[in-house]
Amino acid sequence: MNAHATHTAEQFDDAAQQRDAATLGMWAFLSTEVLFFGVLFAAYTVCRVLWPDAFASASRHTDLTLGGIETAVLLTSSFTVALAVRDVQLGGRRLAAALLCGTAVLGLAFLAIHGLEYYDDYKAAVIPGIRYEEVGGLAAQERLFFFLYYVTTGFHGLHVGIGVVLLLIMAVRTHRAEFGPEYHTPLETSALYWHLVDIVWIFVFPLYYQVGRA
């Protein structure tokens, strides 16, 4: 058996089988996630078709600058995690661990900036159920927009949070030299997950921030 035989769980014949299983498992999980968020995007589409004006005007409450920074942060983090995986594949360790920590920090930065946005929303009183003081003919329909905005970004934020924890664990394991060119499946699947988090945001950003801004 090879040097990494210890990593092969007893139900598997060999490391290759284990790697196939883990990768396929993560892809399957991502397909579930896509449908999970798909409901929110479908609900968004239906409500926006019903209330185009309300969605356009509510969308102008979102902060395009902060949203843009968040997008940049997440995209960069996807890049750093990809670099980390490549470094491990080439036999690296320290740089990879640092890159993973960097990715986690970017994830935290994303959450912090988003928290700032939520705080601004609180001050502007556009959080349905908590503090909502919109008035005007479209207030009821704008509330639907904010509701979907909070559910969507809330679930996305939860995914970012889980991703950050996952990345930090991977950083520690990388640092302890548990991964090498031969075996780094957990790292690879964690990176896959992180890319999904990123891709979901790529849809959230234009849908919620850029509607009604020509």
Binding site: W51, D53, A54, G136, G137, L138, A140, Q141
Partner: peptide
């Protein structure tokens, strides 16, 4: 009333 406002009128009617 706010959902389909006739052209040329302000959306002033309450629901």
């Amino acid at each position: 009333p706010g959902s389909e406002v006739a052209a040329g009128y302000a959306p002033v009617m309450p629901s």
